[in-house]
Amino acid sequence: MATDRPPSIEVRDLSKSYGHGPHRIEALVDLNLRVEAGRTTALVGPSGCGKSTLLRLVAGLETPTSGSLRIGDETPEAVRARGDLAVAFQDAALLPWRSVRGNVALGRALAGLQRDRTAVDALIALVGLSGFEERRPAELSGGMRQRVAIARALAGRPRLLLLDEPFGAVDELTRGQLHQDLAPLWQAQGTTTLLVTHSVAEAVRLSDRVVVLTPRPARVAADIAIDLPWPRGTGIGSNRFHAFCDEVSAALRDSGGDQRLAAQ
C-alpha cells in the first residue's frame, strides 16, 4: 500500500482463540472474507460471533492464532505503524482531560501528521460540533462524544477505517442524524471502511455491501451488494431500501442468528 489508494482486505482461513485449556474460546475459526478497496463494508451477525475480534485483528490489536490477514499486500502491523488506519469503537474512548479540539488533534498527532489547527477545526465543524472546541468530553452528550471519536479517527487521514458499533451507545434519533452527517465524510475521504453493526437498517443505509455472518464459528452466510445511490438521505424509506433490509434480515434468520440480533 505504498500508494495513496485505499487498500482491500484479504482474510484467509483466519482463526483466533482466547485463553488456554478448558477456558479456551475459539472466537474465529477458518474465516474467509474479502473486503473491497475504497468501499464501505458492513458486518452483521449474531452477538458473540466474532465481529469485534475480526476488527481487532485487522487493526493489529490482536495476533491471529492461525491463517493470514493481508491489508493490500501488507500486514496490519505495517499499516498501523504508518498511521494509515483508524478505529472507532462503541466506547468513544476520549481523553477526559482534553478538550474536543485536543482529542481530535490527537488523531492527527498519532498518525504522524503535522499540527494543523485549521484542519482540526474544519473536521470538528464537519461533524457538527463548531463552538464546542474547548469543551471537555464530560460536558458533551453521548452522540456528541461519538462524533468527536469519529472526527478523531478521520483526523489522521486513514486509508482504512474500522468502526465497531460506533453508534451502538447512541439513541435512535441521534443515530439517524449521525448517519446523515457522518457517512458522507468517510465516503468523501475514499477510505476502505469496515463497519460492524447490529442494526440491519444501519448496515443497509451506510454500506456498499453487507456481509452476514453465521453464529460462532462465523461463516459468511450472505454477501449482499447494496446498490442504492449515494447520498442515501432521500432514499431511506423507499421500497428498495426496505427490500434490502428484508433480504439481510432473511439471511440472518436463515443463518440461525436472528433471535440473538438486537435489531429493532
Binding site: R56, A59, G60, L61, E77, R80, A81, G83, L85, A86, V87, F89, D91, A93, L94, L95, L110, A111, R152, G156, L162
Partner: peptide, 10 residues
C-alpha cells in the same frame, strides 16, 4: 478502549 485507540496508531 483508549489504549486500544493508541495501539491502533502504534
Amino acid at each position: 478502549p483508549i489504549l486500544d485507540i493508541l495501539d491502533s496508531y502504534d
